[in-house]
Design a protein around this nucleic acid. Structure first.
Length: 554
RNA sequence: UGGGGCGUCGCCAAGCGGUAAGGCAACGGACUCUGACUCCGUCAUUCGGGUGUUCAAAUCACUUCGCCCCAGCCA
């Protein structure tokens, strides 16, 4: 218990525990005890809420150890990648306020990677294999049976070198040959059975153009990229556990000096009611079911942003979820809670109705301005004014023909307070031929005006929100409460899921105040649980609104 | 079935041999011009099961059951 030059921070998860132990044993003294991590997305889609965990862990480690973090695009498969995605990824990190030390690309290492591949060949650690993809699969063996060596496994170094150079030169078509690591065809770990490390693909790369027609595989490129960058901890999700021996083999054979990067795996983030596979998300975008990757219905960070989710809420959520190795599905209620919590604290308030029911005050004439606190929790943020003309929309659920027990809102003959305005009594519920209530006729009590010191004999059981018929603005927003029980939720069928999502984007009327929203500023509508951030530079999406109004004035 | 992992409250999750933190959810109650918020209170004699070691185990050992991952020229 002697030499303790470094004071170790308190570990808040098992990864940090490991790092502390390594630091304590002096493993990183050769690099000045500098911890380096990386966040390595493949630019083949937008970042989604699942990436949040990797982000949080990596940036958390970086901050805690005053280390460095690279944002590295893991772009080794040109068929799927594009600049659009690297820009989107950068934007999402910026939105979250995460600052990385440098932006790097695996594709910038292609030359270096190629040199290491040749080194492998020269040292007998790799060979060119002519087997087809099907043949490779067939000879790989099964979970219980060992694989059989490729007939090309024992090619000479010279021949391998020649062939590999020809592969690079474009002599062979796609699939004709691959470079394989020469490890162990009978390893119980299938990943070690001579994995492919280079394939031929005559596909232009979004950054390299047609400079290359052979591309390194993840299992080869990733460990080496980590090593090149001097990454100390390569944190990834559980499904790469089986790749760890290969990760270590690749680095060892490449001959990097210690300390060499260490891969540590953690459990992915799963959330109920939220599908996160890129395949699924991309399909939604490609088929035009959503407006884009940033559609507020999407679980992408860009979508969440457009939904009005504050980045801090996301941070709190992911920190609250913790880091462990046990498979976990976090209930979306936990996310909702973090969002509501943040909104409750910081969002300005506004009223809105989703499912409007017209309420007309028969004894009211003229119009007036009512003043509200912008945020009751923080009165110092100011006030807002809403016009009131005596004709308003209220939420359909706030009126009941036959009230359930303990109902606190409007009923025929009952009274309720229109928030910030007057107490009204419902005299008549106008119904159409189908018995549906189409309008409420009410009388109001002038002396009940909000803020008035005149005593008012009338008492209201409840308070409801409203928007003025003449001045209210049409709006679109999403209800973030979990309306359906988990078991009813279509978990895998994405068409059903989309229907579900569509039903949870609501259109209705809101205070005109909302239409003036600043970009990125979420609102908590007075009925807790609703919130909305206006897209398109802070303005409501008008095309949605026009059709809305039509359907309202049926 | 070969290999690699994981099992602590309905959902996450601390705990690392000294007698089960916390959050979400839920449930009571107070307050309320948001049935919200806030506030107070309740919510694992038990750590997948069993057996051992120990004065003492969720923590160690053995065993058993369950779940996840791996046979892409994806990452």
């Amino acid at each position: 218990m002697a030499e303790k030059e470094i004071s170790l921070p308190e570990a808040s998860n098992f990864i940090e525990q490991i790092i502390n132990e390594e630091l304590a044993t002096g493993k990183f003294e050769p690099v000045g005890n500098k911890i380096k991590v990386r966040f390595p997305p493949e630019p083949n889609g937008y970042l989604h809420i699942g990436h949040l965990k990797a982000l949080s862990i990596n940036f958390g480690v970086k901050d805690k150890y005053h280390g460095e973090i690279n944002l590295r695009m893991d772009d080794t498969n040109p068929a799927k990648e594009d600049y659009e995605y690297v820009e989107a990824i950068k934007k999402s990190l910026e939105w979250l306020g995460l600052k990385y030390d440098r932006l790097l690309f695996a594709s910038d290492y292609y030359e270096k990677l190629y040199e290491i591949a040749e080194k492998y060949i020269r040292e007998g650690n790799a060979y060119v294999c002519d087997l087809s993809a099907e043949e490779i699969t067939a000879t790989r063996g099964t979970l219980t049976e060992p694989g059989t060596p490729s007939p090309y496994r024992e090619r000479s170094v010279e021949e391998n070198l020649k062939l590999f150079r020809e592969m690079r030169a474009g002599v062979y078509p796609d699939g004709a040959k691959v470079l394989r690591a020469k490890i162990d065809m009978s390893s119980p770990n299938i990943n070690m059975r001579d994995p492919v490390i280079y394939r031929i693909a005559h596909v232009p790369h979004y950054r390299q153009g047609d400079k290359w027609c052979i591309y390194p595989m993840y299992d080869f490129a990733h460990p080496i990229s980590d090593a090149i960058e001097g990454i100390t901890h390569s944190l990834c999700s559980l499904e790469f556990e089986n790749h760890r021996p290969l990760y270590e083999w690749v680095i060892e054979k490449a001959g990097f000096p210690a300390p060499v990067p260490r891969q540590i795996e953690f459990a992915r983030l799963n959330i109920t009611n939220t599908l996160m596979s890129k395949r699924y998300l991309k399909k939604l975008v490609d088929e035009g079911v959503v407006r884009g990757w940033d559609d507020p219905r999407m679980p992408t960070l860009a979508g969440l942003k457009n939904r009005g989710v504050p980045p801090v809420a996301l941070k709190k959520f992911v920190e609250g979820v913790g880091v462990a190795k046990a498979y976990a599905v976090v209930n979306s209620a936990q996310l909702d809670s973090c969002i509501r919590d943040e909104l409750n604290e910081n969002a300005e308030r506004a009223m809105a109705v989703v499912n409007p029911l017209k309420l007309t005050i028969t004894n009211y004439e003229g119009e007036e301005e009512l003043t509200f606190d912008v945020n009751p929790l923080h009165p110092e943020t100011g006030t807002r004014s809403i016009k009131f003309t005596g004709s308003v929309y209220i939420e359909r659920d706030d009126f009941a023909l036959v009230p359930p027990p303990k109902y606190k809102r409007l009923t025929v003959g009952g009274t309720v307070r229109l928030k910030g305005a007057y107490i009204v009594r419902c005299d008549e519920a106008v119904q159409n031929e189908n018995g549906e209530v189409t309008e409420l006729k009410c009388t109001y009590f002038p002396e009940s005006r909000s803020g008035s010191d005149r005593p008012c004999a009338v008492k209201a059981k409840g308070v409801i929100q409203w928007t003025d018929c003449k001045y209210g603005a049409a709006a679109e927003f999403r209800q973030y409460e979990q309306l359906l029980k988990d078991e009813q939720y279509p978990d895998q069928d994405y068409d059903e899921r989309l229907n579900y999502e569509s039903e949870h984007i609501f259109r209705g009327y809101a205070e005109p105040y909302l239409a003036e929203a600043e970009e990125d500023k979420p609102f908590q509508l007075l009925r807790a649980g609703y919130y909305k951030k206006c897209t398109d530079g802070g303005k409501l999406v008008l095309s949605e609104i026009v059709s809305l109004k039509d359907s309202f004035n049926k």
